[in-house]
Design a protein around this nucleic acid. Structure first.
Length: 423
RNA sequence: GGAAAGCUGGCAGAGUGGUCGAAUGCGGCAGUCUUGAAAACUGUUGACUGUAAUAGGUCCGGGGGUUCGAAUCCCUCGCUUUCCGCCA
């Protein structure tokens, strides 16, 4: 959520930045400014009347105490109008605040200066390319066929017990999942992230804090009987750990990591691109989250990007890094890098990680601030990244490491899996 | 699921209608003392809003009500803890 004062004082800049996203409702900006003017003048009127009412009440108190009951009654008679005015102005103010809030939550984050203008994925900027496509055997298979061939992931069994998009991992497939989770968590720990185990269901306040609510309500599984949401990513619980918190400036940066399953309804996405592991309703992911000083967040974004790349590097995958254009970025992000791994068998890039700087957008919703030894509390910056999401990494490993004798396990993973080939 | 108690500043905790944004302790910050530190002592220390700066306003779990005046009384919702029940 953007800050009203910033919008008011930087109208041109806000409009210019929103155009980088091809934001469709720039008129919201002026609407917000207009509501804000009215809101503040209403607030001032209310404050003045409240001040009068407070003074009168105090005077009555003093008179009562000194036994001047008659004079007190005289002042009481005058206070009736205060009450009505306060009530009316309070109602007006509540309405204006609600209107302003409803408008402001519709504004996405402002893209950072480096973000290219654009509206579709084609306009993303490739900033780094690593490795070359794997040399595959002549009859290379896509991962869903490999999964069936070696009986390591069973999609049909998942359909039986739950539904499409909930695969069952079997034998070495299950073991590979567990190995990747441990591999990712160990590396995150080595990189200075503190491992956390967090709830997989969150309340509505948490969903709002990181921006899933109100606009992406339909994408989350909702346990209505208790009004709790299944997390779509560990970002939600891990970032909300700091909701309504003022951290000490010297404690920054805060670096946390967590493994969690992620649940996504993915309403409305079907077709060839969602085959196999490409898009699931439940999947596993290790997430890294940082809370930083505003001056350091872009430095941190680069650090996180390099960290994610180091994982792909170790797994020996051919990947590229994209800087997303304004239109392809998430609603809450100020700048995002996507890491994509080449799937030789599917002949397409698979997004395996997304690393974003949210600047103060989440912090403003979360009321996450930091405070130095002097001065006021300021909004901190929050960042997060997948490090990494398992399904597409598994797909990449299966596809890119397939041989005629079976699927080789990347060397760095062998000590975690305990085997070096799936056959 | 049943019953009870509670929700106050970074934390603990007092406060049952007016002088309460709120005692006290801890913690934080500054200072005195010290070669330095600790201890002790002194002072200081909530957030938001608002102003050129003052002032003013709001906040004692959320919402509503009573009253000239509410942390305090009433209603309602939420949450937490404890006991009982069930149970990994």
């Amino acid at each position: 959520m953007l800050q009203v004062n910033y919008i008011r004082e930087n109208r041109e800049k806000v409009l210019e930045r929103l155009s980088v996203r091809n934001f469709k409702q720039p008129e919201l900006v002026d609407e917000i400014i207009k509501i804000d003017e009215e809101r503040r003048s209403t607030q001032t009127s209310l404050d003045n009347i409240s001040a009068e009412a407070n003074a009168a009440a105090k005077q009555i108190g003093d008179l009562m105490r000194t036994g001047k009951k008659y004079e007190a009654e005289a002042i009481k008679a005058k206070t009736a109008s205060h009450k009505e005015n306060i009530k009316a102005l309070t109602e007006k103010l509540t309405e204006l605040e609600a209107a302003q809030f409803n408008a402001i939550v519709q504004l996405p984050n402002l893209p950072y200066d480096l973000v290219p203008k654009g509206s579709t994925a084609e306009e993303n900027e490739v900033v780094y390319l690593h490795g070359a496509p794997a040399a595959l055997p002549t009859k290379a298979l896509p991962h869903w066929e490999l999964a069936a061939k070696y009986d390591i992931i069973d999609f049909e069994l998942g359909v039986k017990i739950t539904g499409a998009g909930f695969p069952v991992y079997k034998g070495k497939g299950a073991r590979l999942q567990r190995a990747l989770i441990n591999f990712f968590l160990d590396h995150a720990t080595a990189a200075g992230y503190k491992e956390m185990q967090v709830p997989h269901l969150v309340n509505a306040a948490s969903g709002f804090g990181t921006g899933q609510l109100p606009d992406k309500e339909g994408q989350m599984y909702h346990s209505t009987i208790d009004d709790l949401y299944l997390i779509p990513t560990a970002e939600v619980p891990v970032t909300n750990l700091y909701r309504d918190v003022i951290v000490k400036e010297e404690d920054l940066p805060i670096k946390n990591t967590a493994y969690t399953p992620c649940f996504r309804r993915e309403a409305g996405s079907y077709g060839a691109h969602v085959r196999g592991l490409n898009r699931l309703h439940q999947f596993d992911k290790v997430e890294v989250v940082q809370i930083t000083h505003p001056d350091k967040s872009y430095e941190t974004l680069e650090e996180m990007s390099r960290y994610v790349q180091s994982l792909l590097h170790e797994l020996g995958l051919h990947y590229r890094v994209l800087r997303l254009c304004g239109g392809d970025m998430g609603f809450t992000s100020a700048m995002t890098y996507d890491m994509e791994v080449w799937s030789a068998a599917q002949e397409r890039w698979l997004e395996v990680s997304s690393v974003s700087n949210f600047e103060t957008y989440q912090a403003n919703r979360l009321k996450l601030r930091y405070k130095g030894k002097e001065g006021k509390a300021q909004l901190a910056h929050s960042l997060n990244g997948s490090a990494l999401a398992l399904p597409r990494i598994v797909a990449s490993i299966l596809e890119n490491y397939q041989t005629e004798n079976g699927i080789k396990i990347p060397e760095a993973l062998v000590k975690y899996t305990g085997f070096d080939i799936i056959d």
